[in-house]
């Protein structure tokens, strides 16, 4: 039990996919314009991670090592397509905001990375919690980045204006602002890590 909790929590802080492993930065840069996009992208990626981790750990003994990558990709792509169809049917607005980055979860390094590094070597429950932890870590990172960007870039959080008369810093709504925010946050977290050790 303690083991499972550890698999879950490592994805959030110690091995955070965005700030420590620096994986999946492309969608992070692209969709973190507003908090709602961040949550949507995080939820979609978490669902795919969870689904692919579980299925891959279930069939891991059945897949020969030589063709494991194509098998993983097919499984991941299936979950991504399910996510995309559901988004289109139930939340067209969010689907349009996330755009091409939902289908691109297929090539998100976090998903294939966890499949390759963890799910294909571990049992069902450990893989489940690993996928969940990584997904939650990714989502939290996205929320943090997108909250900073949405606040600075448009003066709002979740579409609500916080400070009257605040002049939005448009650069944070642009890709260059995303690079800036992620770079500074990476530096900040490394500083914290160095302080601790």
């Amino acid at each position: 039990m303690k083991d499972l909790v550890k698999e879950f929590t490592k994805g959030i802080i110690k091995e955070n996919p965005t700030f420590v492993l620096a994986l999946g930065l492309c969608p992070t840069l692209a969709v973190s314009v507003s908090v709602i996009n961040g949550i949507g992208m995080g939820a979609a990626a978490t669902f795919v991670l969870l689904g692919s981790s579980v299925i891959i750990s279930l069939v891991r003994n059945f897949i020969p090592g030589k063709i494991r990558i194509p098998c993983f990709i097919v499984i991941i792509a299936t979950f991504v397509t399910i996510t995309e169809l559901c988004l289109k049917a139930y939340s067209p607005v969010l689907n349009r905001a996330l755009g091409i980055y939902v289908p691109l979860i297929v090539v998100n390094c976090i998903v294939l990375g966890r499949a390759e590094a963890f799910a294909c070597k571990n049992n069902l429950w450990r893989s489940f919690f690993d996928g969940l932890g990584m997904g939650v870590g990714f989502t939290l990172a996205l929320i943090l980045i997108s909250a900073i960007r949405e606040f600075l870039g448009s003066g709002q959080i979740l579409g609500r204006t916080l400070i009257k008369g605040f002049e939005p810093v448009f650069v944070f709504g642009m890709p260059s602002g995303a690079l800036l925010v992620i770079g500074l946050l990476l530096g900040f977290f490394n500083l914290l890590k160095n302080r601790r050790s």
Binding site: E167, P168, V169, F170, V171, F172, M174, S176, G177
Partner: peptide, 8 residues
């Protein structure tokens, strides 16, 4: 350039 992109 930062100002130009932020408050054009």
């Amino acid at each position: 350039v930062f100002l130009m992109a932020s408050w054009p």
